[in-house]
Amino acid sequence: MLEILQYQFFQNALLVAMLASLAAGIIGTYIVVKRMSLISGSIAHAAFGGLGLSYFLNASPLAGGLVFSLLSAFSIVLFRKNAGNRLDTLLSFLWATGMAIGLVFIFLTPGYATDLFTYLFGNILLVSKIDLLMILALDLIILVIVFLTFNSFLSVAFDEEYSETRNTPVTLVNLLLFGLIALTIVATIRVVGIVLMISILTIPAASAQLFHKTVKKIMITSSAITLVATITGLFISYYLDFATGPIIVLIISFIYLISILLSKFNIVSFFSSCVVQKVKQS
């Protein structure tokens, strides 16, 4: 059964799955605790504009996606305050405009856009060596910045106004944090695609938050959940000959539903109390 592990393409896919899970688990935690899922959805869709443009220019799609997602992430930080409660308008604008730009360029490109589906819905089995190296670099950047700025990130994520009174560099922290969201999106495009992106960025962290009450623990559990989902999804889709994106998303959704059941009915403590009673009886 495990002979596929010998193939280079499968090894690449496994590595990308691991790297993407780590990035998504860590940055997804910030997205969930700061309630930024619409913001990240908007950045992800804006990235498609860059993918289309690179497609047209015959450049690396992920590099184009990176430029567009970074630009939209930074513009959200800079215009957020002025937008006030019109933030959702700005997000919708970036969301649809990015998609439209991407589609226009893809239509302009001669030939049939075979890759289109993999960017929209993800197919990790088609990842190239260059993609792998790029995702590795993005992961390293994300890990180093989160490690170094953990405390200032926590302060700004929890209470921006108070951080400002302590002269914490709030705008710089937000630019970095939103920039990292953009990097994470590019690192996970190959895994689940743009349309399904919001799942991998929010649902594992939301599941982890049901059981843990600190940011660090949520990051670890969320990365672990994503890893389990991507690896399992990878094998299932290989054997069923299916695109990886939808399978991985369904596994993530399944884990979330189970997590809700476990936390709501406190099944874990129910079973442990059963065991304790049994021990007492005997």
Partner: peptide, 23 residues
């Protein structure tokens, strides 16, 4: 946001973060 996952001690430590990005 009272649902934010943070402990009492972590909240109090936030006042010591100050100007440094890499605190």
């Amino acid at each position: 946001d009272f649902d934010f996952p943070i402990t009492a001690f972590e909240i109090v430590l936030l006042s010591r973060v100050g100007k440094k990005l890499f605190k």
